[in-house]
């Protein structure tokens, strides 16, 4: 015998409003959370007190000319030129990240499949 169709609940206007706000709050939390966690790995620059020239910044004549056209002096360009990223891999954190992403997809696909079977059963009837 075919199962009865699911009758969804009717949500109040207030409930609809609360649901919208809740999702928005979650978005903001996830935007601000990294700021409260460890500082961003945005690259490091090293400053030295020595006199800075285009040569000491390893810029050739053409590069020095372009920097000048852009309105930079060697002192102003120094932090930009000497900023370097560090691509260090922390295996436990990488493992945790991979686990979170894989876990998310596995959970989502499993639940989706369960819900999908219900949709198909209602739409097309019980399996022949």
């Amino acid at each position: 015998m075919a199962k009865a169709h699911f009758v969804p609940k009717i949500q109040s206007k207030l409930g609809q409003f609360v649901d919208c706000i809740l999702i928005l709050v979650l978005v903001y939390v996830s935007l601000y959370a990294p700021l409260f966690m460890q500082g961003k790995d945005n690259g490091n620059s090293s400053n030295s007190s020595q006199k800075v020239t285009w040569q000491s910044l390893n810029q050739n004549t053409y590069e020095a000319g372009q920097w000048k056209k852009l309105g930079y002096t060697p002192q102003q360009a120094q932090p930009i030129i000497q900023t370097r990223f560090e691509y260090s891999i922390s295996w436990p954190v990488l493992g945790l990240t991979a686990l979170v992403i894989i876990g998310y997809y596995v959970f989502m696909l499993k639940i989706s499949d369960k819900e999908y079977r219900e949709v198909i059963r209602e739409k097309f009837g019980d399996r022949p």
Partner: peptide, 9 residues
């Protein structure tokens, strides 16, 4: 950090 935070969302 952002990657984990967004996945958590």
């Amino acid at each position: 950090g952002q990657l984990l935070s967004i996945m958590a969302f």
